[in-house]
Simulated assay, not measured.
Amino acid sequence: MKPDLSIVKIGGAFLEEPRLATDFYKAFAALPGPKVLVHGGGQRATQVSKRLGITPRMVDGRRITDADSLEVAVMVYAGWANKTLVAALQALGCPALGVSGADAGLIRARKRPVKEIDYGFVGDIETVSTQALQGLLQAELVPVFCALTHDGRGQLLNTNADTIASAVAVALADLYRTQLYYCFEKPGVLTDVNDPGSRVPVLDPGRYEAMKASGQIAAGMLPKLHNCFEALRQGVGRVYIGQPEMLRGGRENHTEITL
């Protein structure tokens, strides 16, 4: 029987709110068995960009990354955000190891080709080094990925953290029974973004398309849910989206994504 593995993605907004961050650190550290954490940092990257006179640009929830914006992303994602998380988890006895896709060649990507939109230095994932990642897990380390990959020729690339979490879960699905969690501040997918009581307990592709057509799902939720469904189609066992309490087995604070 394959061992269980938890892959958890946390939004950068949690790092900005001490109470939310503390609750998440405790819930993640308490997860049994091998686990991987993937984090964002877009909110802080936006703040730092504005301080530096760089205007952030987004299209359908995805960041346009020119050369200046890439520098900010590396500073924030691989620096402040990653090491803040690693230090907090270490304080709870969790053997966290901060990594990017470039470290040990863990995730290689290609620069997104220019079509209708030029996303700049944004990477689309090509490969995940399952062998290197499994080696870290077998050493009982907890990889903590920031949202950066590389192209194998020395170029760092900004890569959507939701996509990284999905790709890592898919890459390890042959070796582990994988569960993928997307943690954010809402109690799951909502029919009314301003009403926590409008949670959708289970979301399948049909309802997703209907909610997207009606405008109930838009902006940053679009790439997130796309990655949820792709993970399931490629062998990931279970996918959940909601608040960190779901890591403790809570039932009223998440949406389960199904096919």
Results as ranks from 00 to 15, higher is better:
residue 1 M to L: 10
residue 10 I to S: 14
residue 11 G to W: 03
residue 13 A to L: 10
residue 13 A to W: 10
residue 15 L to H: 03
residue 16 E to V: 05
residue 18 P to S: 01
residue 20 L to W: 13
residue 21 A to V: 00
residue 24 F to M: 04
residue 27 A to H: 01
residue 28 F to Q: 01
residue 30 A to V: 04
residue 35 K to R: 05
residue 42 G to E: 07
residue 48 V to F: 12
residue 49 S to D: 09
residue 50 K to E: 15
residue 52 L to Y: 11
residue 52 L to K: 11
residue 53 G to E: 11
residue 56 P to W: 10
residue 58 M to H: 13
residue 61 G to S: 05
residue 65 T to N: 06
residue 68 D to N: 14
residue 73 A to L: 09
residue 80 W to L: 13
residue 80 W to N: 06
residue 83 K to P: 02
residue 84 T to E: 13
residue 86 V to S: 05
residue 90 Q to F: 04
residue 92 L to V: 00
residue 95 P to M: 02
residue 98 G to N: 02
residue 98 G to F: 04
residue 104 A to S: 14
residue 104 A to N: 09
residue 109 A to N: 05
residue 111 K to G: 05
residue 111 K to I: 09
residue 112 R to L: 14
residue 112 R to K: 15
residue 114 V to I: 11
residue 114 V to W: 10
residue 119 Y to G: 09
residue 119 Y to N: 09
residue 119 Y to R: 08
residue 120 G to P: 07
residue 120 G to C: 07
residue 122 V to G: 05
residue 133 L to I: 03
residue 134 Q to K: 15
residue 136 L to K: 01
residue 137 L to S: 00
residue 145 F to C: 01
residue 145 F to V: 03
residue 146 C to E: 02
residue 148 L to T: 03
residue 149 T to Q: 06
residue 149 T to K: 07
residue 151 D to F: 04
residue 154 G to A: 08
residue 156 L to W: 13
residue 159 T to M: 02
residue 163 T to A: 14
residue 163 T to M: 12
residue 165 A to Q: 03
residue 168 V to A: 03
residue 171 A to L: 00
residue 174 D to H: 13
residue 175 L to Y: 12
residue 178 T to R: 00
residue 181 Y to Q: 02
residue 183 C to P: 04
residue 189 V to D: 05
residue 190 L to T: 11
residue 191 T to H: 06
residue 191 T to C: 08
residue 192 D to I: 08
residue 193 V to L: 12
residue 193 V to Y: 11
residue 193 V to I: 14
residue 194 N to L: 14
residue 196 P to V: 04
residue 196 P to H: 11
residue 197 G to M: 11
residue 197 G to Y: 13
residue 200 V to C: 12
residue 202 V to Y: 09
residue 203 L to D: 02
residue 205 P to W: 06
residue 210 A to E: 15
residue 212 K to R: 15
residue 212 K to C: 11
residue 214 S to E: 15
residue 214 S to F: 04
residue 217 I to H: 06
residue 218 A to S: 15
residue 222 L to G: 06
residue 223 P to N: 09
residue 225 L to T: 09
residue 229 F to K: 03
residue 230 E to V: 10
residue 230 E to K: 13
residue 234 Q to L: 14
residue 234 Q to P: 01
residue 234 Q to I: 00
residue 237 G to H: 14
residue 238 R to Y: 10
residue 240 Y to W: 13
residue 240 Y to D: 04
residue 241 I to T: 15
residue 243 Q to N: 04
residue 247 L to I: 00
residue 248 R to V: 00
residue 248 R to T: 05
residue 249 G to K: 02
residue 251 R to M: 13
residue 251 R to T: 15
residue 252 E to M: 07
residue 253 N to K: 12
residue 253 N to V: 14
residue 256 E to V: 14
